[in-house]
Amino acid sequence: MLPETSPPGPASSAAMARRSRSSPSRRRRGNAYPLWFHLPAAIVFGTLFLVPTLASLFFSLTRWTLFSYAFIGLDNFRQFFREPFLFQGITNTLIYAAVTSGLKVVLGLLLGLLLTAPIFGRDLLRAIVFFPVLVSTIGVGIAFSVMMHPTRGLINVGLSLFGLQGPAWLTDPDLALLSVALVDVWKGVGLATVIYIAGLVSIPRDYHEAAKIDGAGPFDRFRHITLPLIRPATATVIILSFIGGLRSFDLIWAMTSGGPGFTSDVIASVIYKQYQAGFYGLSTAGNVVLFLLVALLVVPLSLYLNRREVEA
């Protein structure tokens, strides 16, 4: 027979409870090795984002050159907000971001639906749609500025063959900003299309087949199945396109340089003109203002879209 063991007394039970409570903390203290794998990412983040951001905040409060600086407080920000065409630049920036992001969402979704359908040459069409994303932005701007010439441009010459009078795309103050926005959409819609294709192909076919059995038509399936299930893709396209529109500079500068006059100036081009004039501290303060504007607009938008996604 096995010897009988007496139940543990109060003292031994308390000791076992203390060991069970202390062992996880010891394991956590002794298991710090995985935290070292965060070090490379932390170094990259600090070097490429945190340090430049803090340096920009500091130099925005100074009057600086490459060899010296003088602390002047908030004078750069006061002067920046006294710029005569700043309000127009902010307005143009918001219009540009809204137009480009809206068109990329709509066209990207339509192209995504087309390029996930069983059509002939689908892979070739996908490559054609995505190709402009790979082309240099400056190259696209120069090419379209030539094509949009009011008299000798390829676009207006082609319209004249059909008896149509082409507009002055880049020299008309009412059309310059929208013309650049259309080129931006042409160049960036390929990325939106790829995001939508990824969202569309992830939808299980069982949902559509069950809806067909229940008698749902194509529009009903699109409205009640496709649109809700690609909401994460839509949120991604909206946020990325909106950020790109708010920060846009290179395409606008290559095509219009903010003209004619100041009608296509955006915040980034206003900042660049200040930098060209040698007001480095003022342009740095403008960059801080642009960063804050992007954060104030994009963070609430992202929270709203993500909240809608969770509620759905």
Score class of each variant (00 low, 15 high):
residue 165 Q to R: 11
residue 281 G to N: 04
residue 105 V to R: 14
residue 224 H to V: 04
residue 40 P to A: 11
residue 20 S to G: 06
residue 197 I to M: 04
residue 81 F to D: 02
residue 62 T to W: 05
residue 62 T to C: 11
residue 99 V to D: 01
residue 285 A to K: 10
residue 238 I to G: 03
residue 163 G to H: 08
residue 154 L to I: 11
residue 48 L to D: 09
residue 230 I to N: 11
residue 41 A to R: 11
residue 208 H to Y: 14
residue 283 S to F: 02
residue 32 A to R: 11
residue 141 G to M: 08
residue 111 L to M: 07
residue 190 G to M: 09
residue 74 L to S: 13
residue 95 I to N: 03
residue 95 I to M: 08
residue 191 L to Y: 02
residue 174 D to Q: 15
residue 76 N to V: 07
residue 176 A to S: 09
residue 199 G to V: 10
residue 187 K to C: 06
residue 4 E to Y: 12
residue 140 V to S: 09
residue 132 P to S: 13
residue 51 V to T: 12
residue 151 T to V: 13
residue 41 A to Q: 10
residue 215 G to A: 14
residue 156 N to P: 11
residue 68 S to W: 09
residue 135 V to F: 02
residue 100 T to A: 09
residue 35 L to W: 09
residue 144 F to H: 04
residue 53 T to M: 14
residue 204 P to M: 08
residue 89 G to S: 15
residue 24 P to H: 13
residue 125 L to E: 03
residue 223 R to V: 12
residue 252 I to A: 06
residue 42 A to W: 08
residue 87 F to P: 01
residue 79 Q to W: 00
residue 284 T to W: 01
residue 178 L to W: 00
residue 107 L to W: 05
residue 74 L to W: 07
residue 237 V to E: 00
residue 286 G to P: 09
residue 92 N to S: 10
residue 210 A to F: 00
residue 26 R to C: 03
residue 72 I to C: 05
residue 302 S to W: 04
residue 99 V to M: 01
residue 219 F to P: 00
residue 187 K to H: 10
residue 168 A to C: 10
residue 57 L to R: 07
residue 254 A to R: 10
residue 193 T to F: 01
residue 192 A to E: 01
residue 16 M to V: 00
residue 98 A to C: 08
residue 37 F to R: 13
residue 297 L to H: 02
residue 278 G to C: 10
residue 182 L to W: 02
residue 218 P to Y: 15
residue 151 T to F: 00
residue 280 Y to G: 07
residue 139 G to N: 14
residue 156 N to H: 00
residue 235 A to Q: 07
residue 185 V to W: 01
residue 228 P to Y: 12
residue 290 L to K: 06
residue 18 R to E: 11
residue 256 T to N: 00
residue 30 G to L: 14
residue 75 D to C: 08
residue 138 I to A: 10
residue 4 E to T: 14
residue 276 Q to F: 03
residue 177 L to E: 01
residue 25 S to P: 10
residue 144 F to D: 02
residue 312 A to V: 06
residue 173 P to F: 15
residue 174 D to G: 14
residue 225 I to W: 05
residue 254 A to Q: 09
residue 300 P to E: 06
residue 8 P to W: 07
residue 229 L to F: 00
residue 52 P to E: 03
residue 92 N to G: 08
residue 120 F to K: 13
residue 107 L to R: 15
residue 208 H to R: 15
residue 265 D to M: 15
residue 202 S to N: 15
residue 310 V to E: 04
residue 175 L to F: 01
residue 10 P to L: 14
residue 157 V to G: 05
residue 290 L to D: 01
residue 116 T to L: 13
residue 301 L to F: 03
residue 258 G to Y: 03
residue 70 A to N: 11
residue 240 L to Y: 07
residue 91 T to F: 08
residue 309 E to L: 12
residue 181 A to K: 03
residue 145 S to D: 04
residue 265 D to I: 05
residue 76 N to M: 12
residue 20 S to L: 15
residue 177 L to T: 01
residue 270 V to S: 13
residue 23 S to W: 06
residue 186 W to F: 09
residue 258 G to H: 03
residue 174 D to N: 14
residue 21 R to G: 04
residue 234 T to P: 11
residue 294 V to K: 04
residue 295 A to V: 05
residue 35 L to A: 15
residue 162 F to V: 07
residue 241 S to D: 04
residue 123 D to E: 06
residue 210 A to R: 08
residue 188 G to Q: 14
residue 129 V to M: 06
residue 199 G to M: 13
residue 16 M to F: 00
residue 225 I to E: 09
residue 208 H to D: 15
residue 30 G to N: 14
residue 101 S to L: 12
residue 119 I to G: 05
residue 55 A to Q: 15
residue 140 V to D: 08
residue 189 V to C: 08
